[in-house]
Design a protein around this nucleic acid. Structure first.
Lengths: 232, 232
DNA sequence: TGTAATGGTAACCGAATTGTCATATTAATG
DNA sequence: CATTAATATGACAATTCGGTTACCATTACA
């Protein structure tokens, strides 16, 4: 088992809390990202999308509740599991009534044990969800469950690697992926493969996408890598 | 591995503390700048921007808290990580409540170990942030993540070097960069390239920016180098 | 076991990129 | 205004980078 069980972003304005939580998470084998406010959080999410967010209910500027709603509206973060951190004084019912779209709530102060338990439960509940959600971009639809790819109306024949590659692209659009990043994300962290091999699979994927014109979605960024984007 | 892990500015009116901290930092492989007050600090920052600031909460004249706020307002220092040094007697809650915009706090007296740990954590936290934050000046927007440059509405085609050059400019605006500095910052410290080569890439960058009029942002400073600035 | 898919590598080709030089411009100075 | 220093510009040759194909190894499977 690899050391990492998932990336978790903790958004809280108190550095002390962030550190405590991070410590606990690291020891439990999660990777931990920190953000002091929603701005920072946004940057983090865009930079390196986490698998789960711990979000303080009270934040300077935009409140956690408001931010959670926004995350739910954004396509990129729509399915990102959110655990809301609330202070005991904030009556629970009231908080829940706000319907921020959080998946779970935990009341400060909380024990490490409780935190980990809830994270684990939520990840277990959500992980397959994220991995099984069909994605669609610009008439190109991929369904992880049925393992099918439809372009316009018709079925595309993809090899396993090309399928994974396309899935990765579609779930991480609009950002340049270096060959190394692609290798890590698709082949796995500890596999040694030539970087140029990526080119070949890009080629194979493009070939399949060409008849329907969807090859334009895969863009070469010279010197940097590849990008999947509906935009020119 | 190069000896330097980053430049750190320590702002404290007590020379003894400055020296102690500097010693510790140097031994840990950081370069260290000193300032006794905010005036001096400002001079240092403008002269040679550090990667992180250690700021005493109590300072003669302008307080550290006030100064931190000012640093946050200035574009040049907006994303500069700040660690506030506070005395134990200053109730923590009060300090935190001041919301100066510091990224972390450390209470005097502190151990070298703790100081280094916090610096390391903060730099780690900030580095990717800075590298992935989109920048925008005067209708010219660059996004490191998607590797795109937009002028007004439309996409600009930049080569890798021009992209890096522009990114460097946009993240270090309002200051003259000598050719040597540009070579170090963009090409890398130990690459031998003619200084004149910079001119050529400036030229290429300007050419791309010209259609939208953004070439005016890149200004020649005869005898010194180039400057990126929205002002004429 | 034989055959077809699939995956990774190497090799070749063409295009984009890059550094340098030669020459034209421009600015500073007396 | 002439002279000199510094920068801008255009052209060019070398290099790097990505696209593409061919080929071999491995696996799946009939």
């Amino acid at each position: 088992m690899p050391t990492s069980r998932g990336k978790i972003l903790i958004v809280d304005d108190e550095a002390a809390i962030r550190q405590m939580v991070c410590l606990a998470l690291s020891q439990a084998g999660y990777r931990c990202l920190e953000a002091a406010d929603t701005n920072e959080a946004q940057t983090r999410i865009v930079g390196e999308p986490p698998d789960l967010i711990l979000l303080d209910w009270m934040l300077p500027g935009i409140s956690g509740v408001e931010y959670a709603r926004r995350l739910r509206r954004e396509k990129l973060t729509q399915n990102l599991p959110i655990i809301m951190l609330t202070a005991r004084t904030e009556e629970e019912d009231k908080v829940r009534g706000l319907d921020s779209g959080a998946d779970d709530y935990i009341t400060k102060p909380f024990s490490t044990r409780e935190l980990l338990a809830r994270i684990k439960a939520l990840l277990r509940r959500s992980a397959p969800l994220a991995a099984e959600t069909p994605v669609e971009v610009d008439g190109l639809a991929l369904d992880p469950v049925t393992h099918r790819v439809l372009a316009g109306g018709n079925n595309l024949e993809l090899g396993p690697t090309e399928f994974k590659l396309l899935h990765f692209f579609m779930t991480h659009p609009e950002r340049v992926h270096s060959r190394e990043r692609l290798l890590n994300g698709i082949w796995g962290d500890n596999v040694y493969v030539e970087e140029r091999t990526v080119d070949v699979h890009i080629r194979r994927l493009r070939k399949v996408l060409t008849p329907t014109g969807h090859d334009r979605l895969i863009q070469t960024v010279r010197g940097a890598g590849y990008r999947f984007s509906p935009q020119a």
